[in-house]
């Protein structure tokens, strides 16, 4: 009896060791590590904690959040891509996954990952002070054409997605701003506009939300396909005749070659989390856009973004990909 038991156990162990199928079948049987490449308390961190807090209920295992900040996600991308593709190490990315590799910062890019879900998108936007003379993008462009290089606009450093968004407007309208770089992301912009230190800033709807609610600043438009749910009254750039669509997004990534079955299990948990009331209320309330795109759509979206950013990076002479 004892011997049979031992034998069966041995067979089971060998089987589960050697074959992926058995592994995937009982996935997940231990906690999943979720790497966030930004510091605790940052944007990606808060969203990640809310999303994972919901997802672990549906996954049936704890999701442990580990912050590995460094180089706008670069350090975390390296680590996730080098992890074992067994679904126990995943993490999140933003649009920087499409810029780091082309700018020569790290050797990994979107093709080193299997996306699980795209859970949020934050389009670019243009903000001015409440009592600014411009009511629409057309007003602004007309003024900028009369006074080239006079209107000061705060935006993040060159190579960031926020900065690209501003450059796209300049190109589409044939105008030039005086751009004031802001280190540490776009979050300083709205404050500078509210305090009257600059004329305008480029920032996502989520970034300017509080000062907009406080009645100090207002957006001239957002760079999304459709209007942002939290701002039904604000038109998109497209509606105002400027065909530019750009924004930042967040995805959950697993390392490349993670078995499809595991990706699907993760997706089904994260999809439910992304549709939970808690998550949706949080996102819409803070001015962001919640999404629940699956692995296929996320992958093709990544490839599309890669093309867009590679082109922009090359055009500005920032291309330095290491082969």
């Amino acid at each position: 009896m004892k011997r049979t038991l031992l034998f069966t156990l041995a067979v089971l162990i060998t089987l589960s060791w050697g074959s992926n199928i058995v592994l995937s079948a009982d996935y997940p049987n231990k906690p999943v590590t979720y790497i966030i490449g930004w510091r605790t308390g940052g944007g990606s961190d808060l969203v990640g904690r809310v999303l994972c807090g919901e997802a672990e209920k549906f996954l049936g295992q704890r999701i442990i959040i580990v912050n590995k900040p460094g180089g706008s996600g670069a350090k975390a991308y390296m680590e996730i891509s080098q992890a074992k593709p067994d679904g126990y190490t995943i993490g999140n990315c933003t649009g920087t996954i499409s810029t780091h590799k082309f700018m020569g910062n790290i050797p990994v890019g979107s093709q080193n990952f299997s996306p699980v879900i795209t859970f949020n998108k934050d389009p670019g936007g243009f903000w001015v002070k409440k009592d600014a003379p411009w009511k629409t993008l057309d007003d602004l462009v007309a003024d900028a054409k009369k006074n080239p290089g006079k209107i000061t606009v705060a935006a993040s450093n060159p190579g960031s997605i926020t900065r690209f968004g501003l450059l796209l407007l300049e190109e589409a309208a044939g105008i030039k701003f005086r751009i004031a770089s802001q280190s540490g992301g776009e979050s300083k912009g709205p404050k500078l506009v509210a305090g009257g230190h600059v004329d305008a800033c480029q920032a996502a709807p989520v970034t300017g939300r509080s000062l907009y609610k406080a009645g100090l600043i207002r957006p001239l438009g957002f760079m999304s396909e459709e209007r942002v749910p939290a701002y039904p009254e604000i038109p998109t750039y497209k509606e105002q005749g400027y065909n530019v669509v750009i924004g930042n997004y967040r995805q959950v990534l697993a390392p490349k070659d993670t078995p499809e079955e595991i990706i699907n299990k993760l997706y089904s948990a994260f999809k439910k989390a992304a549709n939970s009331e808690k998550y949706k209320n949080f996102m819409i309330g803070s001015g962001s856009v919640p999404l629940d795109w699956g692995p296929e759509k996320s992958k093709s979206y990544l490839m599309e973004q890669d093309k867009i950013f590679m082109k922009m990076i090359k055009e500005r002479g920032l291309y330095k990909e290491k082969k």
Binding site: R39, T40, G41, G42, L46, V50, P190, K191, A194, R209, S210, L211, K213, A214, L216, K278, N281, F282, G285, S286
Partner: peptide, 22 residues
């Protein structure tokens, strides 16, 4: 104003948002 004066205050902002308080 809804803008955090420090990083812990940024987390308080998140906590308020989760409860639908802007």
């Amino acid at each position: 104003l809804g803008i955090p004066g420090s990083s812990p205050a940024a987390i308080l902002l998140g906590a308020l948002m989760i409860h639908n308080l802007t």
